[in-house]
């Protein structure tokens, strides 16, 4: 198996937590992984991306080749579109529809969503609303991970374990809430692949 994933969002939105949970799941499944992160200046509210590659064979490049991504996971709708050159013809886009508006010329949300609707393989969900329902608006990144998990070839139980590893230190309540968010997200994409 091979999953080449591009994670997208705005600095501070928690894409590295998504990557860490998948990374944990991949390692515990004895898969190879390479994950290129962005640190530094962009983290100050700029667009950020992380490349995550999971494979049962050795992985050469830390970067996903442009046109080779099997999956784009975005926690922000305009940011999902920014990485379309990365997407393989058969690749999926899984994105939140909640805009993060921190620039004066952010386009009308309806225009962004219209672009997303034109994509053949796209799951666009209101992650913030789903997260709120699950118990915490802050878990919308985990909702996105749940929605994306349908397209990741790692057993879902391993990803659940990844969530436990990620939030274990914060107590059982936080773990339970994030697992709820994860499953709620997954329910929105199950069967679409």
């Amino acid at each position: 198996m091979k999953n080449d994933i591009v994670l997208a969002g705005v600095g501070g939105q928690g894409i590295l937590s998504i990557a860490a949970a998948i990374g944990h799941a991949a390692v515990s499944s004895n898969l190879n992984i390479k994950q290129a992160e962005v640190h530094g200046m962009s983290q100050r509210g700029g667009d950020v991306q992380s490349h995550l590659r999971v494979s049962d064979r050795p992985i050469a490049s830390d970067l996903v080749p442009a046109g080779g991504a099997d999956l784009i996971i975005s926690v922000e709708p305009m940011e999902a579109l920014r990485y379309l050159p990365m997407l393989a013809p058969s690749g999926w886009v899984v994105t939140s529809t909640t805009p993060f508006v921190n620039i004066p010329d952010y386009p009308p949300v309806e225009d962004v969503l219209a672009e997303l609707r034109q994509l053949k393989r796209c799951v666009a969900i209101d992650a913030d609303a789903i997260a709120k329902e699950a118990g915490s608006a802050r878990a919308s990144n985990i909702v996105m991970l749940g929605a994306a998990s349908t397209f990741i070839d790692i057993p879902f139980e391993r990803i659940e374990e990844g969530i436990r590893a990620l939030f274990g230190r914060k107590g059982e309540q936080v773990v339970a809430m994030n697992l709820k968010a994860l499953r709620a997200g997954r329910a929105h994409s199950e069967g679409q692949r």
Binding site: Q43, L81, N102, I103
Partner: peptide
């Protein structure tokens, strides 16, 4: 050369970093 994915739609705007 490898084939890249689709182009970036024109609706996408630059998002430079900024002071918190």
């Amino acid at each position: 050369p490898r084939a890249e994915g689709g182009p970036v739609p024109s609706v996408v705007k630059m998002r430079p970093p900024s002071l918190c």
